[in-house]
Write a protein that binds this DNA or RNA. Sequence first.
DNA 1: CCATGCTGAGCGGACGTTCGTTTGTTCGTC
DNA 2: GACGAACAAACGAACGTCCGCTCAGCATGG
Lengths: 210, 210
Amino acid sequence: MPRPTGGVRTADAMHEAAAELFYLHGYEATSLRQVAARIDIQVGSLYNHINGKDDLLRNIMLGVMNDLLAAQRTALRGRTDVVDRLRAAIDCHIRFHAGKAREVFIGNSELRSLGDKDRRTVVAKRDQYEKVLRVLVEEAAAQGRADVVDTRLSVYAIVAIGTHVSTWYRPQGELSIDQIVAKNIVLCLRQLGVSADEIEAIEAASAVGA
Amino acid sequence: MPRPTGGVRTADAMHEAAAELFYLHGYEATSLRQVAARIDIQVGSLYNHINGKDDLLRNIMLGVMNDLLAAQRTALRGRTDVVDRLRAAIDCHIRFHAGKAREVFIGNSELRSLGDKDRRTVVAKRDQYEKVLRVLVEEAAAQGRADVVDTRLSVYAIVAIGTHVSTWYRPQGELSIDQIVAKNIVLCLRQLGVSADEIEAIEAASAVGA
DNA sequence: CCATGCTGAGCGGACGTTCGTTTGTTCGTC
DNA sequence: GACGAACAAACGAACGTCCGCTCAGCATGG
């Protein structure tokens, strides 16, 4: 059944099926036959949309990194106060890692399955993302708004929480996404040595919205 | 070349080679032929020591979990003050995840490659490990020694830092393992709402040893 | 002398990929 | 509205390769 107008849908369904299977079983353990079966087509038909299996992984990983960077830009847009920018960046970080848990998990666990060129691209984007956090932490410290032990370790701690959230978060869990975000923001700001007063003000502000 | 006394050595070398390859390429992407080649024997010979490829993964993962639990028990032995116990548990956690980065990384990324029974065993051990941390955090809060936002999220944050450390730590890095441990302990205690005075005392004590 | 452990050939099967064929759709022409 | 060329996309069989695994045979140290 050729579907001239359905072509785009097939391509989308294929990437969706691939993301789900890569998430569940990993890239290497997923066969193209499984991907094809999930959208009820034959293996060979996949090659109307991709040049090879690696295309599927590349598209997913580059996509999630671009989305992550875009989300960070959007979250910071229009904010000037450095602690507010930090709060917004952490909010975005946790929320994104919970909301796109599947893609983020693939992004973090399948880096080594990527070819050299693509891996370098993804790592560069990750570095770019982390650099924004690092600069924010440095600025907060420079302005005396944070008492930072070690910039790199502090940024890693924030990153680590997001990565970890993507491994356990499920929408039907006992904590809502807003609660998870709000509480983790407090943990991160504490860790950064932001004053208790400032953290309380931020907590109060987020409680208004809840 | 049969090696009557070398049998044990072959078994050890095989597990070592498997761990290295699983770490570098992942379980599914590693073939038994690669494992065999790394210790200069033929594929079939591996079966003198294992019943199947999954034995290699099982041994590595059960081994690392047992080691982790043992390290935690040792770290806590003889300590009574709850904040000191927390500090020791975090110290052990970070140090173990840096020192056994390879095995820990495999343990965290290859859970899904394990059979049902073994996965349940590993998850149970991980739960047991996290429960010790959870109880410590609850005790510290109950004694008024910590101002905990959310027990589960705080424990997850500690766990996440360890997992993350295992992805980037290299012995020749610019921070020594002792520095990484000491600084991360401060981050974790801050996040747990331990008082600045207590944290300073702990920092001073570790600085003496450095 | 025999248990231990390695060799080396080989099994069946699954893999990613290719390709000629078939099918459904679009669109210009009359 | 009917025709037919052009095209996109799925089919399905086949390809060579690699996989995990088995096993008969042989070497050697205790």
